[in-house]
Design a protein around this nucleic acid. Sequence first.
DNA 1: ATTGCGTGTCAACAAGTGTTGGCATACGGT
DNA 2: ACCGTATGCCAACACTTGTTGACACGCAAT
Lengths: 193, 193
Amino acid sequence: MVPSAQSTQPRRSDATRAAILRAARERFAADGYERATIRAIAADAQIDPSMVMRYYGSKEGLFAAAAEFDLRLPDLTSVPPDRLGEVLVRHFLARWEGDETLVALLRAASTNPGAAERMRGIFADQLTAAVARFGTDPTLTARRAGLVASQVLGLAFTRYIVRLSPMVDTTPEELVCWVAPTLQHYLTGTPPS
Amino acid sequence: MVPSAQSTQPRRSDATRAAILRAARERFAADGYERATIRAIAADAQIDPSMVMRYYGSKEGLFAAAAEFDLRLPDLTSVPPDRLGEVLVRHFLARWEGDETLVALLRAASTNPGAAERMRGIFADQLTAAVARFGTDPTLTARRAGLVASQVLGLAFTRYIVRLSPMVDTTPEELVCWVAPTLQHYLTGTPPS
DNA sequence: ATTGCGTGTCAACAAGTGTTGGCATACGGT
DNA sequence: ACCGTATGCCAACACTTGTTGACACGCAAT
């Protein structure tokens, strides 16, 4: 992608900024918020730690920039209603395998309140909005979204964080087969009593 | 429970040891491994930080002692096969609400390799063993256990760590109704292809 | 060429960390 | 009553952390 005719003109330090951000995402994803030190990130990006401060203000600011994330959920109204679960699992798995940002967010959310807040926002806003397309009861919609989040985050947690052997070894396709009915049930199943 | 006629005779410092352990569990559960400082734990237990070192050797040692945990899984062969899911969810929920040890372990597992290792052990050993009672294929058994772990840990992660509003607000009973079929499917469902 | 400013490095600070050794004290067995 | 040992506190170490300010270099415009 070209520097683009965005609102702000391209700066000479854009390459450095990008290198910092990339290193930050890697470190946050691998080590979590507190173990990922600014010095280590700066070393990975091959610059001085003070640059990180100048460009991102603080460690919190750096994390906020590095953990910017969009689930890019597809329009669920245009998929067959009985394939909702399958589409969702496949989408989430693809989103994870290709972008370590969510893993960074996931790791950090356990110990950093800001990260947890952001995680809440992502799943409460983006996922709930996607689910809200069908069904009118807002409480039920939120509950459905929450249940989907629980299974999907549990999948990521066991596969990428804890690295439970069976969850690591299983192929994405097989995971889809197993988990799709679960999400389908959470999305379209009849609520209890 | 009485000091007991265990292998080792009761020491005069048992009360202190217990206070340290209780404070450690609270702090680890609330703050995670790195943010839970020995000084804070010692302050909670109203003793000097050096005592923690003397009795538990190091921070790692303290965590190892504080994160000792048994799932106390019931004997799954004595429950009706179509109620396995329900029994399991209910058991896990009860186990969590009453003991913060697992929350501590869960929080710490994101950033501390030792905690992740222990988490792996608990779910790979205890849960797999309970599931192995029926079904002979070991790979399939491990996979079933892993899937159950993913949903159950995802439930805990969204409810106790991230605190997603819909997952916090929902009553345990209703959660059981939603999640039971999922676990049932993972335990007894037919594997894909 | 000179002036400004953005970019980058170096050294250092203040705070907090896990960890250690020394010293007082009080208990329990003799 | 005495002595050894367990228990507890205090002060300090060595180290790492995020963060800051001063200083050097190079590009761009005048």
